[in-house]
């Protein structure tokens, strides 16, 4: 019944995009931005001298190549992105710091999602008391501002490791996946295919993980990415306040030190500017992935 003769090649190409929703331009752009940051970390470790990240390993406050600082010093190729106020090479700082920031976000989000999936399924499936407790708990947790508690906690605790920080942040990102999954599970358990699975003698675990979970994947992905963003924002917020890991380079820590050493007044823009740009790239990448996933799971948003 269909014939292709009266369509231009361009029209066909545009519509081919619908056949495989995962080949979504937004998704691809977002993924390549994030992969770029990961590649920076990997390639940097191979091709750059990471010892330059230690204090005093380089001249102080050198600008990036092609710029001059207030002391009329020119940037040198030994330190292409310049150095900071205590003589650390900016490039090696970024090579170590940027993946660290991303890692905290992903780890916190992974932990949060796992807890969310577990609690969401429990609430949706077991109903009754369990559901009430989980629902009230997640609703209450949503109203508590995470930064406030984390600031108090970290100030008391002092130095923490990256993993510890991820775990602390994860305590505040499990609520929304819990609510999302609970709602989906409640509507899905009445659906025809779940009834069919029950008729087929399927165990509860089979119904949860083999029948329901695959259909939740688009939601889970979207929620995961949104959580990564929130976690990175929280982590960077703590670091910029001077909390969080003290001895591990992160983007937020670099910004904190820049502000603390008067980089703004001394016009040392590369010190705080370049980490900020990398953070922006990270957030734009995550946002694009989230928008792309939205279009994948909701075909009505796709435009011809």
């Amino acid at each position: 019944m269909a014939d292709t003769s009266d369509l231009t090649a361009r029209q066909i190409r545009r519509m081919k995009r619908f056949d495989n929703p995962w080949r979504n331009p937004k998704l691809m752009w977002g993924a390549s931005l994030l992969l770029g940051i990961i590649a920076l970390g990997l390639l940097g470790r191979l091709f750059w001298n990471l010892d330059l990240v230690f204090t005093g390993s380089a001249p102080l406050k050198l600008p990036p190549v092609g710029f001059e600082n207030l002391r009329r010093q020119e940037g040198v190729w030994d330190h292409p992105l310049g150095t900071d106020g205590s003589g650390r090479d900016m490039l090696s700082l970024l090579i170590i710091g940027a993946p660290n920031s991303l890692m905290v976000g992903v780890l916190a989000s992974l932990i949060g999602m796992s807890v969310g999936i577990f609690l969401g399924f429990s609430a949706g499936f077991l109903k009754g008391r369990v559901d009430d407790v989980i629902r009230v708990l997640s609703d209450v947790m949503i109203t508590i501002p995470p930064l406030l508690i984390l600031v108090v906690f970290q100030a008391a605790y002092g130095d923490v490791s990256l993993t510890m920080m991820a775990i602390l942040i994860a305590c505040f990102v499990w609520q929304s996946p819990t609510r999302l999954i609970r709602a989906q599970v409640l509507s899905m358990r009445e659906s025809g295919y779940v009834q069919m699975a029950r008729l087929s003698g399927a165990s509860t675990l089979h119904i949860m993980f083999r029948e329901m979970l695959p259909n939740l994947v688009p939601y889970l992905f979207g929620s995961f990415i949104a959580n990564v963003t929130t976690s990175i924002v929280t982590a960077v917020g703590l670091e910029v306040l001077g909390l969080g890991p003290q001895r591990v380079p992160t983007l937020g820590r670099a910004i904190y030190e820049a502000i603390n050493s008067g980089a703004l007044i001394q016009n040392l823009w590369w010190w705080w500017g370049i980490p900020t740009i990398l953070l922006a790239v990270m957030f734009i990448g995550l946002l694009l992935i989230n928008l792309g996933l939205d279009e994948v799971s909701n075909p009505r948003l796709r435009k011809l």
Binding site: S191, G192, Y193, M196, A197, R198, L199, G201, E211, N215
Partner: peptide, 17 residues
């Protein structure tokens, strides 16, 4: 379960997409 089976009303909902 093996001995008692069912056919439901909505053929669209009965298959896991």
């Amino acid at each position: 379960r093996k001995d008692v089976q069912a056919v439901f009303q909505d053929p669209y909902a009965c298959f896991n997409p």
